[in-house]
Computed example of a mutant assay.
Amino acid sequence: MLGEPMVERHRTTEGQQTAPDSVSGDAFNAACAAALAGARVALLSVLGTDPAGDLILAELVRRGVDASQVRRGEQHTGAYTVSPDAEGQPRFSYQRAGSAATTLSLADLERWGRVLDATPVLITSGVTAAISPSSAQLVVAAVTRVAGAGGAPCYDVNYRPNLTDAESARRALRAVAAACRLVKLSSPGDSGPLLGIEEATAVAAALAEFTRAAVAVTRGDAPLLLTDGGQTTEHPAVRMPTPVDSTGAGDILLGTLAARLALGESLAAAAPLAVVAAGLSTRHRGGAPRATLDEIRAALAAARRTEEPPADPPQALEEQEARP
Rank of each mutant, 00 (worst) to 15 (best):
L2P: 03
G3Q: 05
E4F: 11
M6N: 03
V7H: 00
T13D: 09
G15K: 05
Q17R: 13
A19N: 01
P20A: 08
D21M: 12
D21C: 01
F28W: 12
A34D: 12
A35C: 07
A37H: 13
G38W: 12
G38R: 12
R40F: 02
R40Y: 02
V41F: 07
L57W: 02
R72C: 06
R72N: 08
Q75P: 03
T77C: 06
V82K: 00
S83I: 01
S83N: 04
P84R: 11
P84F: 10
A86V: 14
G88D: 11
Q89L: 15
F92A: 00
Y94E: 10
A97H: 08
G98L: 08
G98V: 07
S99I: 05
S99M: 05
A100S: 13
T102D: 07
S105M: 08
A107H: 14
A107L: 11
L109N: 04
L109I: 09
W112C: 10
V115S: 12
L116W: 08
L116V: 12
T119C: 15
V121D: 06
G126M: 05
T128P: 01
A129V: 03
I131L: 03
S132F: 01
S135I: 02
Q137L: 13
V139F: 08
V140M: 00
A142T: 06
V143A: 04
T144W: 01
V146D: 10
G151P: 06
A152S: 15
C154M: 11
D156W: 04
N158C: 03
R160D: 04
L163A: 11
T164R: 02
D165C: 10
D165Q: 02
E167Y: 06
A169M: 04
R170T: 11
R174T: 10
V176Y: 06
A177L: 10
A178H: 10
C180N: 06
C180E: 07
L182W: 13
L182C: 07
K184C: 10
L185C: 08
S187N: 08
G189T: 12
T201A: 15
A202Y: 00
A204E: 05
L207T: 06
R212T: 11
A213H: 07
A213G: 07
A214F: 05
G220L: 08
D221N: 14
A222E: 15
A222W: 04
P223D: 07
P223M: 08
L224C: 08
L225D: 04
L225F: 00
T227K: 13
T227R: 15
T227Y: 01
Q231W: 02
R239H: 11
R239F: 01
R239D: 12
G248C: 03
D251K: 01
R260Y: 09
R260H: 09
L261S: 11
A262V: 07
L263W: 09
S266H: 09
L267H: 07
A268K: 08
A278W: 01
L280D: 06
R283G: 13
R285E: 05
G286S: 09
G287H: 00
P289K: 02
A291R: 06
T292I: 05
L293H: 13
E295P: 04
I296A: 11
A298Y: 03
R304P: 05
P310I: 05
D312F: 10
P314G: 13
Q320S: 12
